[in-house]
Computed example of a mutant assay.
Amino acid sequence: MALDLNTNKLRINIDEPRWDQSTYWGRAKHFFVTTNPLNLLCTSKELERAREVVTKHRKGENVPGLTEDDLWTAKHVYDSAFHPDTGEKMVLIGRMSAQVPMNMTITGCMMTFYKTTKAVVFWQWFNQSFNAIVNYSNRSGDSPISVQQLGTSYVLATSGALATALGLNSLVKRAPPLIGRFVPFAAVAAANCINIPMMRSKEVSDGVPVIDKDGNRIGDSKIAAKQGIGSVVLSRILMASPGMIFPPIIMDRLERRGFLSRYPMAGAPLQVIMCGICLTFATPMCCALFPQKSSIAVSQLEPEIQERCKQLPNPPTVLYYNKGL
């Protein structure tokens, strides 16, 4: 839309996504934009311009010649580089737009160099180090991650991934080669099952805010926190699945046909490229599986929250909470 926002006196709520988040494809469109790797190419000048546009619009100030499309472009660029709560510029590899290029490189290398202990230790450590940077960069401003919590999660996730990878490698030595190629996927899945709950353990102990349809805070729910963390763990594992399942099958066939013996240096680049193709689509599409503003029936929540709802003039049957990413 080329409509001038200043001339037409339009005020757009940019604190909500552009597309309808009650539909899967609306959420998918949002995450395709959020995880767009091209945002990494924005210069410092472009990032500052985007911040200026977003800041002025939120304050109700006019930006000469600003159209609706210009506003949303600036918002998406701003979201790709600046923390939503603190407003600080995030480190490059910690941004959501870096997820595809970073993960395709790490995943491709994990699946290429999975046979030796040294390679397994290095790439699992590297992967969990990257995850720690992403988790810290995208930490909540309301519930900040302490250094102790970050360190504990990092150590446990790395240990879990290494134990899984090294343990399975020893078990599958006599199994068909294809089975061994799936060991990195099992290690990543195990690490996600440890890392995410650990990073969000404060939510499990204290609960997350649950609100009604009008945004009124009803209370804090540990049950909603566990449901949200479970959905995030599932989406993260599914996100990694295509890039860690299809490339091994293709590489196994190439190995059987002698391609990799003729071109041994082609293994890592091929797997990185295949992972990149898979992650380009899997990352946004799996992030969109569950609504960011998730719902939960009041009957499933803690008794005290149920009682609080019953005392309201129009008792809600469903409450909402932020599931996280």
Rank of each mutant, 00 (worst) to 15 (best):
L5W: 09
K9M: 08
I12M: 09
D20M: 11
S22M: 07
W25K: 13
G26P: 10
H30K: 08
F31G: 12
V33I: 11
N36E: 09
L38H: 08
N39A: 13
L40C: 08
L47C: 13
E48K: 15
E48L: 13
R49E: 15
A50K: 02
A50W: 01
V54K: 06
R58K: 15
K59L: 13
K59S: 13
E61W: 06
N62S: 15
P64K: 02
G65W: 02
G65T: 02
L66A: 06
T67R: 01
T67C: 03
E68D: 10
D69E: 14
T73L: 12
A74T: 06
Y78F: 05
D79C: 04
D79Y: 04
D79A: 07
E88R: 15
L92V: 15
M96Q: 12
A98E: 00
A98G: 02
V100K: 04
V100H: 04
N103L: 15
I106Q: 12
I106G: 08
G108P: 10
F113M: 04
Y114R: 14
K115M: 09
K115V: 11
T116C: 11
T117Q: 03
K118V: 14
V120W: 00
V121M: 08
W123Y: 07
W125R: 01
F126D: 04
N127V: 00
N131F: 00
V134I: 01
N138M: 10
S140N: 05
G141W: 04
D142P: 01
D142K: 15
V147S: 14
Y154M: 00
L156A: 13
A157P: 01
T158Q: 00
T164L: 01
L166F: 00
G167T: 02
L168D: 01
S170M: 09
K173I: 10
R174C: 06
A175G: 09
P177Y: 04
L178K: 01
G180N: 05
F182P: 02
V183M: 03
V183C: 03
V188Q: 11
A189P: 00
A191K: 02
N192M: 08
C193M: 15
C193S: 13
N195Q: 04
E203S: 03
S205F: 08
K222Q: 14
I223Q: 07
A224N: 00
A225P: 08
K226A: 12
Q227R: 12
S231K: 14
V232A: 10
P242Y: 04
M244I: 05
P248R: 01
P248C: 02
R253W: 11
E255Q: 14
E255V: 04
R256I: 00
F259H: 08
S261I: 09
R262T: 13
A266C: 10
P269F: 05
I273H: 06
I273K: 06
M274R: 01
M274C: 03
L279M: 05
T280A: 12
T283Y: 06
P284Y: 03
M285F: 14
C286K: 11
F290Q: 11
P291V: 07
Q292S: 13
S295P: 04
S295M: 12
A297F: 07
P303Q: 04
P303C: 03
E307P: 02
K310P: 08
Q311T: 13
L312K: 14
P315R: 03
P316I: 11
T317G: 15
T317P: 09
N322E: 06
G324I: 02
L325M: 14
